[in-house]
Amino acid sequence: MAKILIVEDNESIRTIVRMALEMGEHEVVEAADGREGLHMLQTNPDCALVITDLAMPVMDGYAMIARIQADAAFAKIPVIVLSAEKDATAALDRGAVRLIRKPFSPIELLETVSRVLEA
């Protein structure tokens, strides 16, 4: 199974994503904003996937995705966006591979994660 980074400022949502991923027997690391997410990536370079929110304090999801894309060491790590924003599809243009709308189904999240990891 894979190591997955969750970047989400809402702790309740982070917990639910972690619960779902652990059901899929994935290893989970967590960050509360984009800047912390980048730091976690540097300390966990073996992460196979990033799941991120967009609206976050300090550094939002858009900025973090742009930084991941710009860094050769992480550019190949797929990013799934988890957002309630109406215009979140813009994240797909900036390098995210999937968009999951909140509120989300943990079962569907696990299925999407599996598909992305298999791709």
Binding site: K102, P103, S105
Partner: peptide, 23 residues
């Protein structure tokens, strides 16, 4: 933006609990 509070704090736990029950 959307009224995320309702979505994240109230609706999300309900949907997640339902999925976990199914699992």
């Amino acid at each position: 933006g959307q009224y995320k509070k309702t979505v994240e704090e109230l609706l999300q736990p309900v949907i997640s609990a339902r999925d976990f029950v199914r699992m």
